[in-house]
């Protein structure tokens, strides 16, 4: 992988770990698995203006797996939506960096999430609005939605999948963070979902499978010309990616690090 990209991903992971260590709560596993997904969006694909976060023509991002917001916050700070120092106030009383993203508090957040399953409907609604704006002579903005694989157990995910195909929303892309784990175990232990790609195909979506830690591959999938339907990108990822003792460990979904663990994690990423 590109050296600069890799450096950047390490830096973001270090930010995420520091944020989570400072507040002694939050969700390391799912934050670390979606770093490259957000990197592709913020570095290569999305149109936004950090100085004017509510710019009407911007592309929208819905962080449906809202518990992984430390990674989103780290990119927003990196892009200048707010000062980097604020990152260390994550989850503290009075901070605009809430435990789950609050669109009325944090600049650059397009949807208040945290209640799993609702993000795909937020994205659907934004995509409808984008089409409408395009028809009215404005920019038909694009909409990206990052969802968890456990999250796809929610019924609303499938209600919105049906609606997006019905309305032929080719300005809508779901990035599926397929790390295989949730809280009570693996997806298959908790509630097996079967082949997610076949399901989305059957719902009328364009489906692309990528290595979810390869920024270039994700970027390429995002930039592919429209197929006239909504796009589902299955990003195969590792929960806890980058920290060996967190990788693929269900127990690191939402556990605070002690000092020793934090230092060990940083050592792995700093090399």
């Amino acid at each position: 992988m590109d050296q600069n990209l890799e450096q950047k991903a390490r830096k973001i992971r270090l930010d995420v770990l520091k944020m989570l260590y400072e507040c002694q709560s939050g969700h390391p596993g799912g934050s670390l698995s979606c770093v490259e997904i957000l990197q592709a969006l913020y570095e290569n694909v999305m149109q936004y203006d950090a100085k004017n976060p509510k710019w009407q023509d911007r592309d929208r991002l819905v962080m449906s797996k809202g518990h992984a917001c430390p990674t989103l916050y780290a990119f927003l700070a990196d892009k200048g939506f707010f000062p980097r120092e604020e990152l260390w106030n994550l989850r503290q009383y009075g901070s605009f960096l809430q435990g789950h993203p609050d669109m009325n508090k944090c600049p650059g957040v397009d949807a208040s999430t945290g209640s799993l399953g609702q993000g795909t409907s937020w994205a659907l609604g934004y995509a409808l609005a984008g089409k409408r704006q395009g028809k009215d002579g404005g920019r038909e903005f694009k909409v990206y939605c990052i969802t968890g694989d456990g999250e796809s157990q929610e019924g609303m995910v499938w209600e919105s999948a049906m609606a997006a195909a019905h309305y032929q929303l080719d300005n809508l892309t779901i990035l599926f963070d397929h790390n295989g784990l949730q809280i009570d175990g693996t997806n298959d232990q908790v509630l097996a979902r079967g082949d997610i790609c076949k399901k989305y195909e059957a719902f009328g979506w364009e489906v692309i499978v990528v290595d979810g830690h390869d920024v270039n591959a994700i970027t390429e999938a995002l930039k592919k010309p429209s197929a006239g339907k909504p796009r589902f990108i299955c990003c195969n990822t590792v929960k806890g990616k980058g920290v060996s003792f967190m990788e693929n460990q269900v127990g690191w979904h939402g556990k605070p690090m002690n000092q020793e663990q934090y230092e060990a994690a940083c050592r792995e990423l700093e090399v």
Binding site: C23, S25, G26, G66, R91, Q98, G99, H100, D102, S112, T113, G114, S115
Partner: peptide
């Protein structure tokens, strides 16, 4: 419930 915030 604490740090999870208002959504929770």
């Amino acid at each position: 419930c604490g740090e999870d915030g208002g959504s929770h």
